[in-house]
């Protein structure tokens, strides 16, 4: 007899249940059979994830870019090791073909590697030395915005999800990812990838739950600096933007593929530093 899985949240490198004690069942795509029970994050779980992200950002954001690249590459290695688990999970819960599932996993692994390679390159591509008209050295460099909430509500595609996570993460942001109803079970193996890749605790946190319940708190949380919105419901997007004005959040709608450098630089601030030149 198979053991029934319970999928828990991923906060600060740990796998806690929801503090609310709530969970909901996920079925196999084509039946009433329960695939797993999964924790349903509450407002307080979101808060705990943001607190963890704050700690995580301090290590992740100040790591050398080379180190971040190594860790992102390590994620690809760990994901490769879990290929069968990912493929099985995608097939079981989404009902997609073996070919399609493998394609999505390929794309996810590619995305880890692609952004691993970007972690120490986007700076030179987006930074500038400014030819100011005076005796000053002026340069502009990217700086991670801090904590980014990533909402994955609709248009689920494993490759796109990883691409969005890795592009935001590559610059040194920490993440609170909210997985919507389409494929919440992906949390488990994905969290295991993160937990075994030398990623600092809290640098990426994964939650599952009901977006309608969580988004007002995402929008109004003052520590969340930016939101990447992959959801169809513009009502929610607009509402998050509106709530986000409380701390001037950068809210980026992200349903379709964009220029990959832009995917990174949408979640950085540019800092211009001036210094005199003179003996």
């Amino acid at each position: 007899m198979k053991v029934l899985k319970t999928i828990k949240l991923f906060i600060g490198g740990e796998f806690p249940r929801s503090e609310s004690g709530r969970s909901f069942p996920i079925n196999f795509h084509d039946s009433e059979k329960i695939y797993a029970n999964i924790a349903q994050a509450s407002r307080k779980d979101l808060r705990a994830a943001v607190e963890a992200a704050e700690v995580g950002q301090k290590s992740w954001g100040f790591m050398t870019a080379y180190n971040r690249a190594q860790i992102l590459y390590r994620m690809a290695e760990m994901a490769e090791g879990k290929r069968h688990e990912f493929v099985g999970l995608l097939k079981d819960t989404l009902g997609i073909s073996d070919k399609e599932a493998n394609k999505q996993v390929d794309e996810a692994i590619d995305a880890f590697i692609y952004y691993a390679g970007f972690a120490d390159k986007f700076q030179q591509m987006s930074a500038a030395v400014n030819p100011v008209a005076g005796p000053h050295h002026s340069f502009t460099t990217p700086d991670p915005v801090g904590i980014v909430a990533l909402i994955c509500e609709s248009h689920f595609d494993f490759g796109r999800l990883v691409s969005n996570i890795a592009s935001v993460s590559a610059s040194g942001n920490s993440l609170v990812v909210v997985l919507g109803p389409e494929c919440p079970a992906i949390l488990q193996p994905l969290a295991e990838v993160f937990a075994t890749s030398d990623l600092p605790k809290g640098a990426i946190n994964l939650l599952t739950g009901h977006l309608k319940e969580l988004y007002p708190h995402i929008g109004s949380h003052m520590e969340i600096r930016s939101v990447s919105c992959q959801n169809e419901d513009t009502e929610i997007l607009y509402e998050i933007k509106k709530l986000g004005t409380s701390n001037m959040k950068r809210v980026v709608p992200r349903y379709e593929n964009v220029d990959s450098l832009k995917a990174i630089t949408d979640f950085v601030e540019f800092k211009t530093v001036w210094h005199p030149i003179g003996t």
């Binding site: 500038a128 100011v132 008209a133 915005v145 540019f270 530093v273 001036w274």
Partner: peptide, 22 residues
Amino acid sequence: GVVWANTYNKFDPTAPFGGYYE
């Protein structure tokens, strides 16, 4: 968004200007 080291209030069309947060 702008850090002036050993100088202050320097502006130039070539130098990006703008803020973080609020």
